[in-house]
Amino acid sequence: MSPAANRPAAAERSAGPLSPHLQIYRPQLTSVLSFAHRLSGVALGLYSVVLVAWLIAAAAGSTPFSTMQTAMRSPGGQLLLLAGIFCFFLHLCGGIRHLFWDAGYGFELTSIYTSGWVVVVASATLTAIAWFAGSVL
């Protein structure tokens, strides 16, 4: 019997049950971090526009540069900066975790949860350290 004979016809297949959608599942550390990695990556893409704008402002002269610095020191600018720093460390730590997976390490369920919590705690700690260092200097 050919493999095709085991498969239902197209009409029958479309009427059959679909695999459950993502919203059906209770959020888990694994799925939340997976989505957070993509989301922080896209967010960092938007922050890279700010980085380029900062370089252009610096090249344009001291007046545009100080306008940019003033905007970044405003409460809204500071909030955006803090969120950006957290996105950076989350994507950095999560990225290192992904590189270990790509190399074939850390696939046991216990390792996946341990590395996941390490990513959460490390990104929060590094964000706090960077913020503190930036405000002191």
């Binding site: 890279s48 526009v49 980085l51 380029v52 370089l55 252009i56 610096a58 090249a59």
Partner: peptide, 12 residues
Amino acid sequence: LCIAGILATLRI
């Protein structure tokens, strides 16, 4: 954006 950033850096 990449080219704009590089040009700004080289200009500096």
